[in-house]
Simulated scan of single mutants.
Amino acid sequence: MSKLHLHIGSYKTGTTSIQKTFFVNKEALNEQGFVYPGNTQNDHLLYFATKANQENWPRQFKSLNGKRLQEAIAKYFSSLENGFTSNSKQQLISTEYLFIHNSTYIENVISFLSDYFQEIKVYLFIRSPEEYYRSFQQQKIKARSYLTPPDLFKYEFKKVAKAWNEVAELEVIPYQSGINSCEILCEEIGLNFEKLSTPDKNSNTSLSIGQMYLLEKIQHHFYQDYEDRFKNQLGIVSHIDDSFTHKPQIQDWVKIVVYNNHRGDLEWLKEEYGIDFLQDYPRTDELSDFTTFENGKASVRDIYKVPSEETVEKYEAMVIDTLLKKLVQSN
C-alpha cells in the first residue's frame, strides 16, 4: 500500500530545517525506503492543488511574475508526479503553506494526492501561542514597519487541525524550542534520523532586539508604500552580528493578552491531543490594563521589553561602520 506522509507546519516550528534535511538526504531516505519527491527543497507550490482564488494566495506568490509562476508550477507538478510514480511505497512532502483551514481547499489537495496514494497521514506541529507570536512578529518586521497588536493576533491551530482531521489521519505534535523538529518528525514517521546528515544551519535565524529596531526604523522612513514585501537588501541586517544586545522578550501584559485570546483553543488542544501549553502562561489576574492600538499597528517598543538604548544605538553605529568599510573596500 502506497503511503504519503504530509507535513504541513505550522510556521515557526522548524519547517525550513525539516525541508532542508530531507532535500539534502534524498539518497539516504531512499535507502530507508522513502522518497522526497520533486526538484525543490520545499513543496510550497503544492498549495496550487488547492485551486484557491488568487486573493487567497500566500503573499509570497502574489508578487511573482504571472508567466514565470505558471511555468514554475507546471515544472513542479511534473517533477512531483514523476516521483509519485516511483516504486517506493512511502513518500514525504513538507510545506507550511498548507497550514490552512478552508475545507474546500483541503479537499482539493487530498483529492489530488489520493490519485497516487492509498493512505495519507498529515503531521502538524503546534507551538505555544505566546512563543509563536513572539517569533512570528520577528519575521513580520523583516517585511513591514509595524507589528500586529496582541489583541488582534490569532494562531488558528484549532481550525487547521479540525479541518485536516475531517479528511485525513492527523498527528499533532507539540513544538519544543531547542529540540530538532526533524528528529521528532522522523521518529513519528518511522525514519532513522541518525542515518541522515545534518545540513548547515539555515539563514532564517531569529533577529535580535537591536536588529528589529533598526529594520523597523528603515521600513518606517523609506518603505511605507511597500509594506508586507521583503526587501532583499535589508537581509544583510540579520547577518551583521549583534551579540551584545538582547534576544527579544515580549512584555508581560502581551503574554497575558495572547493567552486570553487562545485559552479556549488551548483547553481544546489539551483535551483532544493531550498537549498542555496552559501551564506555560502567566496568571490572568495579573492583567490590570493593556494597551490598545486604534490603527491596528504596534511598534517594536510597544510589544518587546526595551533594553538599554545605548546598546541599540551602538548596533546601528556598527551596521553603518560595517557598510562603510565594505563600500571603501569595493572601491
Rank of each mutant, 00 (worst) to 15 (best):
D321A: 15
K3I: 06
T40F: 04
I100V: 11
T245L: 02
A298S: 14
T284N: 04
D289Y: 12
C182H: 01
S2Y: 11
L147H: 06
A143M: 15
N204W: 14
K305Q: 14
P307S: 13
E313K: 14
Y36W: 00
L207A: 08
E169W: 05
S206A: 06
T95Q: 15
V167I: 11
R127Q: 05
N30L: 00
D289W: 09
I218V: 15
A298T: 11
T291W: 10
T205R: 06
F112S: 08
D252K: 14
N42M: 06
L287S: 03
S63I: 13
R59A: 08
Q224D: 06
E131Y: 08
T291Q: 08
P58M: 13
K217Q: 05
S243M: 10
A49W: 11
Y223I: 07
Q19S: 11
S128G: 07
Y273D: 02
P174S: 05
Y105D: 12
S2I: 07
P174H: 05
S243E: 15
I275F: 14
R134E: 12
S86Y: 02
K154C: 01
W253F: 11
G274I: 07
L214E: 01
W57C: 00
S17T: 13
C186S: 00
S145G: 03
F230W: 03
K12S: 04
K121E: 01
K162T: 14
K51F: 05
L6W: 13
P150K: 10
F136E: 03
I110V: 08
E169K: 11
E171P: 10
N102I: 10
I236W: 05
L152F: 13
K314C: 10
K67I: 13
K26Y: 02
K121Q: 03
D241N: 14
C182Y: 00
F293G: 02
V167H: 08
S2D: 08
S17F: 10
S177Q: 10
L152V: 09
D285K: 13
L287C: 15
V328A: 03
I100P: 03
N204E: 07
I8T: 10
E183W: 11
Y76R: 01
G264M: 12
L214P: 03
P282Y: 10
S330E: 12
I141H: 09
L92H: 01
K62G: 03
E183N: 14
S288M: 13
Y133Q: 05
Y213C: 07
S145K: 05
D321Q: 15
Q138C: 15
L46A: 08
D280P: 10
N204R: 12
Q249Y: 08
P149N: 01
S17G: 07
D228L: 14
K231S: 06
Q41D: 05
S86G: 03
S208M: 12
L324R: 13
